[in-house]
Write a protein that binds this DNA or RNA. Structure first.
Length: 135
DNA sequence: GCCAACGTTGGC
DNA sequence: GCCAACGTTGGC
């Protein structure tokens, strides 16, 4: 089981919308590194859902329910999508500023490369975020 | 609104 | 194959 972090600008696709939709096709990724991460995703993996832009916080979790396939919104065979399902809204969203304040999270891709829209998360990092989301 | 970081494009 | 120019993303 692996852990991931996917980003969305709330104005484009918010976590509230994700909750309403219950399940969605994660489309529009046009970056090779992010694409490669999507190809690594397995059914049952968990992804943290992060709001970029004004929000800048991890707001909840989704589960990968369908592994990658050709992005149906483009003819370009370089790009793929996965399908994710709403899992949980955090009682306490975890701010980027708080994440940056935690030593053990300093190596997160989110911190190191803020522009990567789909990144992997280590198990210990994931567990730390979950702890921070509880209180 | 600004700018740093990163990726992509195209001229040489 | 290198690198300058440009566009985009996202934090501040």
């Amino acid at each position: 089981m692996n852990y991931w972090l996917i980003k969305s600008e709330p104005h484009t696709y918010s976590f509230e919308q994700m909750k309403t939709d219950k399940k969605t096709m994660w489309e529009g990724v046009r970056n090779y590194q992010a694409r490669n991460n999507m190809k690594e995703m397995k059914k049952g993996d968990i992804a943290l859902f992060y709001h970029s832009g004004k929000d800048r916080q991890v707001v909840g979790e989704v589960e990968i329910v369908k592994e990658f396939y050709q992005d149906p919104t483009t003819e370009d065979t370089n790009w793929v999508v996965v399908e994710v399902k709403f899992k949980k809204t955090f009682a306490n969203p975890v701010n980027l500023a708080d994440i940056k304040g935690v030593d053990s999270l300093s190596e997160m891709h989110l911190v190191r490369n803020s522009r990567l829209s789909v990144s992997s998360v280590r198990k210990d990092e994931y567990e730390m975020i979950i702890e921070m989301a509880k209180s």
